[in-house]
Design a protein around this nucleic acid. Sequence first.
RNA 1: GGUCCCAUCGUCUAACGGUUAGGACACCAGAUUCUCAAUCUGGCAAUGCGGGUUCGAUUCCCGCUGGGAUCACCA
Length: 473
Amino acid sequence: MNKAVRVRFAPSPTGFLHIGGVRTALFNYLFAKSHKGKFILRLEDTDQERFVADGVEQIIKSLDWLGLHPDEGVWYEEKPGEHGPYIQSKRLNHYGNFAQGLVASGLAYYSDISPEQLASLKAEALASKQPFVYQQSMEPSNVTAPDTALPIRLKIPAGSTKWSDEVRGDFSTSNSLIDDFIIIKADGFPTYNFANVVDDHLMQISHVIRGDEFISSTAKHALLYDMLKFDRPTWIHLPPILSPDGKRKLSKRDGDVNVLDYQKKGYLPEALLNFLSLLGWNDGSTQEIFSPEELIAKFNIDRIQKSPAVFDSVRLDWMNGEYLRHKLTEEEFIEHIKPYIPAGWLNDLDYFKSVLRLDRDRIKRLDEAKYIMEIFFDLPKVDSKLLYKKDDAATAKQWIASTISELDTIEFTHSKLETALRGLSEKLEAQTGKYFYVLRVALTGRTEAPGLFDIFETLGKQESLKRLKNCAH
RNA sequence: GGUCCCAUCGUCUAACGGUUAGGACACCAGAUUCUCAAUCUGGCAAUGCGGGUUCGAUUCCCGCUGGGAUCACCA
């Protein structure tokens, strides 16, 4: 009885989409696609206090950029599916019905203990170093009639709960360790633990793929499935992604954790996804670069890692550079680079392409492109200190003057420029390295740039000589 | 603190009892050279510790140590 594969990514719209959440979404997506199943986007907005106005939009925009499009669920226009709505605040009737059913059969109860009372009981237990597990017997009074102002707690039965995870193996928890936890809050909204189980059942989710922070609450979920007489899904918990120092989970203090920051910085979605796919998974070979299609073809849960992975942005930069250098045609590259450069640069497309051919290999992130390429579009400011760093000003000026008259008469092609400039270098009795250094700085204002003859050729005679003349006196 | 999880180069990871412990990023050196980048070649670098089991442990078992997760009317 192989159930159809249906998986969901179920973030909470409480801000931006975290890079760790993207890895979870990606693994869900890859698993769905590799089994010709459905990838569903569900929004868990049961905490009214943490609601953020553009939270939903942030999530959709992020997944859209990455190409992780859901088959069902919330989207710009909700994607069709038989199990909607896909946002929990619109599903309150379902949670209420199941909770009432549980109360009616004595498996759950209205709880009259206030948060303050509960907190003091806990503090007491902590002070006497006793473990604390909340049970109905601790209720200050027995509520017999339904009272919608009160939260509903699940009455945990005696015994133990066993469940298993596809990557971690078998778990067993004594029920005596589990609190009578709240399933419906006093405001009528369900808690995560409850809504999650009800929705996964109703939406016929076959595999629950999520972060490992949920391992410790999975026993509660398993219990709920059983008490509600639902079939349990297959659980797959992903290893955490750690901060660069490896000391904690990746968080805001470690820099960019909002996916859209990676878009701004000029990472390609394919590169980011490739990088993320290798955090906690590998295909067993020495292959490092995988196209989205290859990822789908090769992804399997058997090779998901148990141990945590450190987020290494240096490796991400390398991978992005690989994509930028080898995975895009010139036209595609230009399309990608457009948002990061002045529009005017593209007015003369042939010129832009000739510049791009010189600079493409040195761009690791698209947001570096403007700085790297601008020497071909704007007259550089030449710092005389830099220009005269290796030789005195008089010598440098003489070199530049000689160069101007020498180049005035030749054709600006790479080979002719090389012959002329090397010849002149000899005639001037200059060290080639120092001579070329002066020319490079005069031309670009930089010490690091493409090859000298390439710069001359690309800039052309008129512009080159203009720049040299600016530095000749 | 209770419960649970994890453990190979600095980092991502391969090796499902027998390998000189492999690859990649980073780093270092060399080649190329007018600088940077790219490219190519080479190098440095790991099985946390202690017991078992076994002819033989990175691999299986136990303990320790270290790290992490979780213990909300948050998800």
